[in-house]
Amino acid sequence: MIYGVYIVSKSGGLIFHHDHSVPRIETEKTFSYPLDLKLDFDKKFITVVFGQRDGIFVGHHLMAVNGTQVNGTLLEDGKEVKEILEKEENYPLNLRFCRPRMTTNEKIFLASMFYPLFAIASQLSPEPKSSGIQILEADTFRLHCFQTLTGVKFMVVAEPIQTGVEVLLKKIYELYSDYALKNPFYSLEQPLRCELFDQNLQLLLDNFEKNGITNI
C-alpha cells in the first residue's frame, strides 16, 4: 500500500504532494462520568492531551459527541462541547475520536525538514562518498527517497512490506519529466499544478497497488 508521494525541489521546498490511501483511524467509545481523558480546547479542535486508552491516543481530535459532528468547539446544533462534557446528567456519552490528517502546512514543514537530514546522513557517513538517505524505516511505514541528478527529490511513503518502490520512484520521475518539465506553463522550482501529471500519477499508483511492479 502506498500512503503518499512528495516531491521536493532542488532548493528544499515542497513542490508537490499527494495522499494516496491514508487509512482513516477512528475510535468510538462510550464514557461514563467523570471523563477520564484530559482534553485541550483549542479554537479549531478538541485534542486529547492525556490519558490515552483503547486506541484513543494523545493528539487525536474529538469528531463527534453522541453521533453529532463537532465543529471547532461547538456541536452542529450550536451547543458548547465543553459544557456537555462537564455535566454529569449528560453521561453516558458516546465520543468519537479520529487521528488528525496532516495539513498542507505541516507537509511543507516536514518536507523541508527532510532536506538537512538527508545532507547530515551523508556527512556522518563512515564510508566515503555516501549518498543521502534512501530508505528510512519506522515500525509503521517506510519512506523511500530518490534524488535525481538535478537535485529533485522524490519521496514515497509506503507500508514497510511494500516491494518495488524503487521502480515506482523512477516511474514517477518519468511522469514528472513528461508532464511537468515538458509543460511550457510550468516553471522550475514552482509548485507543481499540472492536471495531466495528477491524472497519470493517480493511474500509476492505482495500477501499482493492484498489479505490483510487473505491470507498470
Partner: peptide
C-alpha cells in the same frame, strides 16, 4: 539529527507508531 528524525517520523507516520524510527539506509551504509 536523530532527535529530528524521531519527530519527523512521528509526524509523517500515517498511523500511530509505537517504536517509531528503526533505521535508515544510504547507498553506502
Amino acid at each position: 539529527s536523530l532527535y529530528s528524525i524521531k519527530s519527523f517520523v512521528n509526524k509523517i507516520s500515517p498511523i500511530d507508531s509505537k517504536e517509531g524510527f528503526l533505521f535508515y539506509k544510504t547507498d553506502k551504509y
